[in-house]
């Protein structure tokens, strides 16, 4: 027993060192961003209040109020555009197939305005923190956009703050398609340039020209169809011969992110309840 205590005293530095290294490695290799606890991310109370304070000062440089009014206006207009587009789609479908009934999901999406209080663009895995949380009915896995295009997906929600996985994070894959022809692929960031990303897994036969616009596909229920994402600037190499990839210039300027809109999908609960009931019957 005495020898053991002597041993522990003698090598206490190494023991402490090893314990700390193990703790750090557990944190480091707990890779899935959905598993991170809220106290260990920038959405916790202390860090969010500090970021709130600094943002209060720096937002004067960006003329916060004028921006917000403009965003409010654009969000109303955008909602209108989406509903009109849906209406148009409905008539299109009726012309092509008048036996099938299309659900009138005009008010399926709602927008909430939020301010970015912390943002990074130059790390390998980038996250954004906003100042709205569960008190403003923000939930995880909601889509986030700004006036130019897609920003990311909500991941951890606190009472008054939420953390967003930015598109500039290799963990996020976004289903997108080429405007004009409906060939879709998945958008992923390659970690090099915060203004560019790669659209992968496009089918071989799809046609794409430099300057074409990339929009969201609407397959995931997180983003409505047709939100602009980027512009094709070059072809990129894909390992697999059956697919090809495109280099995309992102429309969103992540270095100037100020006010964003969180998309609430009103049909989500309905979809979830249907999925739940189907599970119960099984």
């Amino acid at each position: 027993m005495r020898n053991l205590i002597n041993f522990l005293f003698k090598y206490s530095t190494w023991i402490i060192f090893i314990i700390y290294v193990i703790i750090s490695c557990i944190l480091l290799f707990n890779n899935n961003p959905y598993q991170h606890h809220i106290y260990l991310t920038s959405a916790n109370k202390i860090s969010s209040s500090i970021y709130n304070g600094t943002n209060y000062i720096t937002s004067y440089f960006h003329l916060k109020d004028i921006n917000e009014d403009l965003h409010h206006r654009t969000s109303i207009l955008e909602q209108e555009v989406i509903s009109l587009r849906k209406e148009l789609q409905k008539y299109h479908d009726i012309i092509y197939n008048d036996t099938m009934q299309v659900t009138p999901a005009l008010s399926q999406y709602k927008f909430k305005i939020a301010h970015v209080i912390n943002n990074s663009i130059h790390r390998a895995h980038n996250y954004i923190t906003i100042d709205k949380g569960s008190n403003d009915s923000i939930e995880s896995e909601m889509g986030v956009i700004d006036q130019n295009g897609v920003v990311g997906i909500v991941n951890i929600v606190g009472e008054n703050t939420a953390r967003i996985i930015s598109i500039l994070n290799p963990d996020l894959r976004l289903s997108c398609k080429l405007k004009g022809n409906d060939n879709f692929g998945s958008l992923v960031w390659d970690g090099k340039n915060p203004n560019e990303a790669i659209l992968e897994e496009l089918p071989r036969h799809a046609e794409a020209n430099i300057g074409d616009t990339i929009i969201t596909s609407g397959y995931s229920a997180v983003f409505p169809e047709g939100i602009p994402v980027g512009i094709v600037i070059a072809r990129a190499n894909e390992n697999d011969d059956n697919f090809f990839a495109l280099r995309i210039k992102l429309l969103t300027d992540f270095s100037k992110l100020g006010t964003v809109r969180v998309i609430k999908n009103m049909m989500k609960e309905e979809i979830n309840s249907i999925e739940k009931s189907s599970k119960n019957t099984n």
């Binding site: 402490i16 060192f17 700390y20 750090s24 944190l27 991170h36 260990l40 991310t41 500090i50 790390r123």
Partner: peptide, 24 residues
């Protein structure tokens, strides 16, 4: 020295969402 450095790294990790990188 070890303890203080670890706490320092841990605080930076929490603020900048880097999960154990700076603590290690």
């Amino acid at each position: 020295v070890l303890t203080l450095s670890f706490i320092m790294g841990f605080c930076i990790d929490i603020f900048s969402d880097t999960h154990g990188m700076h603590s290690l």
